Simulated scan of single mutants.
Amino acid sequence: MSARELVVLGTASQVPTRHRNHNGYLLRWDGEGLLFDPGEGTQRQMLHAGVSATDLTRICVTHFHGDHSLGLAGVVQRINLDRVPHPVHAYYPASGQVFFDRLRAATAFHETAELRPHPIGEPGVLEATGAPFTLEAVRLSHPVEAFGYRLTEPDGQRLLPAKLAALGLRGPAVGRLQREGRIELDGRTVTLAEVSEARRGQRFAFVMDTRLCPGVEQLAEGADLLVIEATFLEADAHLAAEHGHLTAAQAARAAAAAGVRTLVLTHFSQRYPDLSGHLAEARAQFDGELVVAEDLARIPVPPRRP
């Protein structure tokens, strides 16, 4: 199993179908499990996908329409039923606080776990203490307030074995060099920069219900993996604009312009039982790795750029 992968729990938009559950996406990122937009049925989809409540460390809700949040009540209660031993952080638009409160306490249950709310009032970097990444919220354009999410790993350094070998650096000395940034060797100072190169941190972006807007571009920029809604086809672009959504072509063009590596299309309207049109429309705009998401698919975060 990849240490960094997307587990697709549902791909439907407003109305689920026989083959598409309401939204739900779990991002496994090393020891973190981020659950995005848990729609109705998410708890059962987690069971089918082999995802447990203890895998969850953060829940990110883009907005409070039912297909993106009705599953929150069941997930919160499952976290408590399973006595998840670590805090679970919940991020959501502050303007939807009343809906969050209703879903959190939808029915009676015994509270045994710690859920830490983080209402989002303004776009920007979010509190994510202890996470090996930065989590950011960016405003989108939808009939209700909506935020997309962007996860960014800090840049690091990659050691170059040939340069280490040329200097005779090995074993504990390499560890010291990594920790301290420099080491004395045969009367000279060797710095980490001399035997390494910059390693770009990986980036993940999650873009749900929105029209084209600056936030889409900001979230997608340089993403290794972009999950983005593609509710409509171009023939129905007027419906997309009216209801605050994207077409497959619009999503793919945005991804191409942003230099995205792997593009995942999802959130499909019930009017399209066959998604071959989404694939064709997106492929005409985007020549990178392209996935038309299916329920219970597992999509690895692509390997680091060389």
Rank of each mutant, 00 (worst) to 15 (best):
A297N: 01
P87T: 00
L226I: 05
R139D: 07
P123T: 06
T189Y: 08
R200H: 09
L81D: 10
D287P: 11
I120T: 10
L233V: 01
P161Y: 08
I79E: 07
R170S: 15
Q270M: 06
A258M: 15
T62M: 06
Q202S: 03
D224A: 02
E180D: 07
H243T: 13
D82V: 02
T247V: 06
G31I: 06
V51F: 04
R139K: 14
R304M: 13
R102F: 15
P154K: 00
H89N: 06
T134A: 14
V138H: 14
R253K: 03
G31T: 15
G10C: 07
Q45H: 15
C213V: 13
S196T: 09
F109L: 07
R20E: 10
H68Q: 04
P87S: 06
T57Q: 15
R116L: 14
M46V: 07
A166K: 14
L185W: 04
L177R: 14
S2H: 07
A193Y: 12
A106C: 06
R104K: 02
R20C: 07
Q97F: 15
T54V: 07
Q178F: 01
Q218R: 15
G31S: 14
P123R: 13
A198T: 13
P300H: 05
S69R: 01
H278P: 01
A230Q: 03
R83N: 13
V88G: 03
L169H: 12
H65L: 11
T42G: 06
A131K: 00
P300C: 00
R139P: 02
E281Q: 01
D101I: 00
D287N: 09
H89V: 01
S13E: 08
H22I: 03
E136C: 05
A198D: 14
R182D: 10
V207R: 09
V88P: 03
Q45A: 15
F232N: 01
A49C: 05
D236N: 13
Q285L: 10
V190F: 09
R104F: 11
R102P: 10
P123I: 04
S13Q: 04
G168W: 15
R20W: 13
N21R: 05
A198G: 02
E32S: 10
Q45N: 13
P85N: 06
A252E: 05
H48E: 11
L27R: 12
N23E: 12
I228N: 02
D30A: 08
T11A: 07
L126R: 02
C213N: 03
V88D: 03
Q77N: 06
P132R: 06
I228L: 10
H22F: 07
A49H: 03
R150L: 09
